[in-house]
Computed example of a mutant assay.
Amino acid sequence: MQEDSESDAVVLQARIIAFVRAFGLYQPDQTPCGQALSVSEAHTVTELDRDGPLTQVELAGRLRLTKSTVSRLVDQLTARGWVQRRKRDGDGRLVWLEVTDAGRHAAGELATARAARFSSLLEAIPAGRRQTVVDALTLLVKAADEQHDQH
């Protein structure tokens, strides 16, 4: 039984690696939907646009990145003019991160490109198997979340 489990794990690993490559997640300067920024930058601006302003610690938790990595991402997005750091009245200790108007525009373009890419990907899957794919990914995310929470 252990051998089957190890074999299944090897197959899962190979399939995830193949998907990451095929989808284009290794591109350091472009999202899989063809936008000229890193995947981490895209996720950062998307989170801040959807639920911001957020503190750096909150953002790091959502993205599952270290605080220093998020700081570098925010520096990059600040240089693009998409994110700004702000203090709030009454609490000078916390720095809040929020998207600028330019960042909101970029997040909208990202959302449009992402929707088109995923629609195209979904159309390439036979209609009768699409829900199976979504269900399998949901289970995979749940398992990964549970493992992350244990560490």
Rank of each mutant, 00 (worst) to 15 (best):
R85D: 05
A36I: 00
L59S: 11
R88Q: 14
V95P: 00
S68P: 01
E41W: 01
D91C: 02
V39S: 09
R88W: 07
R80C: 08
L97T: 02
T69A: 14
R86H: 11
D89R: 15
V70I: 05
L54M: 14
R86Y: 00
G92F: 11
E58H: 08
K87E: 13
D75S: 12
R64I: 00
W96M: 11
T78S: 14
L94A: 15
D75H: 08
D91I: 09
K87Q: 15
S40K: 11
L37N: 02
D91Y: 07
V57Y: 05
V45N: 05
L97Y: 04
A36G: 02
T31I: 08
W96A: 05
P53F: 10
V39Y: 14
L37K: 08
L94V: 09
L54G: 04
L94W: 01
T46E: 12
V74K: 00
Q35S: 11
G34F: 04
W96F: 14
V70E: 00
A36K: 13
G52K: 01
P32T: 06
T69I: 11
E58Q: 15
C33G: 06
L54V: 03
T44I: 05
L59C: 12
Q76W: 00
Q35A: 12
V70L: 04
P53W: 10
L77C: 08
R64K: 11
V45R: 01
A36T: 07
T46I: 05
R62D: 02
P53G: 07
L97E: 02
A36M: 08
D75V: 04
A36W: 00
Q56L: 12
W82Q: 04
V70D: 01
S38A: 10
L97C: 04
Q84F: 04
V95I: 12
L65E: 07
V83M: 08
G81M: 12
L94K: 13
V74Y: 02
L77Y: 06
G90L: 01
V39T: 13
H43C: 13
V70M: 03
G61C: 06
P32G: 09
L37M: 15
L63G: 00
T44W: 04
T44M: 06
D49V: 05
E58I: 00
T66L: 03
E58N: 05
R86G: 01
V57M: 10
R80Q: 13
Q35N: 04
W82R: 04
V39A: 10
G92P: 12
R62I: 04
T66H: 09
L73I: 10
Q56N: 13
R72K: 15
L97H: 02
R64D: 06
L77A: 03
E41G: 03
Q84M: 07
Q84V: 15
L94F: 06
T66V: 04
E41M: 14
Q84C: 04
R62K: 13
Q76N: 15
V83H: 07
